[in-house]
Amino acid sequence: MKASVAGYIRANDVAHAVRLLASADGMGRVLAGGQSLVAAMNMRLSTGDMLVDISRLTELEGVTEEDGRLRIGALTRHAEIGRNPLIQTHAPLLAEAAGHIAHAAIRNRGTIGGALAHADPAAEFPACILCLNAVLHVTGPDGSRDIAAGDFFHGLFETALEEGEILTAISLPKAEPGEVQVVEEMARRAGDYALAGLCVTRRRAGYRIAAFSVGPRPILATGAMQALDAGDLDAAVANLAEEIEPASDTQASAAYRRHLAGVLLRRAALRIEGEAQ
């Protein structure tokens, strides 16, 4: 199929991009890496878009340390996330997750901001930043604001971003000494969306578990977290099964996904034990 696009403009800076979106009559779409949007347009799942291309706004790229936290520009590519030394040191969860995302060509173009704003519940990064308790920085016609990851994901492809707002960066706390972060997922083929996946971290304050591909949005499994904190893995698996909302599709049933999530939690717990030693 051929895409049906209403218009395309390359933004000069973030303010320009915000003005362009404001003038697009609700049809504005931010084009960053294009790895989900262009595919959707080429299937005519999205037509009549006014594309605002932010992909050359270099000020939105890169990883920095800021006030003891890690700041990741929205245009930072998956491949960079996977190999960036600051991320490998301070947010190894993101680096590991990047290796699970699709294939090299897609990782070279896809951006973390795009992945978060797209909010595919099967994607790794939304669950990662939920697990890492990140903050999302957005800019819109009324200025800038911050949104906690826990408030950002509303549903299937739905987020707290308002019309005309652009996600510019995320920031997150650095891993504390001795913190362990792991991703466990299983996909039918390497690079496919996971049948189920878990991000698990253990820090002094306790475990955090965010599940993906098992509901309409990434799910923070608080019941499973509490059980793990109490040292009861079996209860954590049981709680996790209650907390997730998997759907059935052509790859696997909800029942399978629920079972798989439990297997993955046991594996994550085992890995964390191993890596902590």
């Binding site: 083929r189 390497a190 790859q251």
Partner: peptide
């Protein structure tokens, strides 16, 4: 994405 052909990996 939905019809899985065998891949190299």
């Amino acid at each position: 994405a939905d019809y899985l052909v065998p891949m190299a990996a």
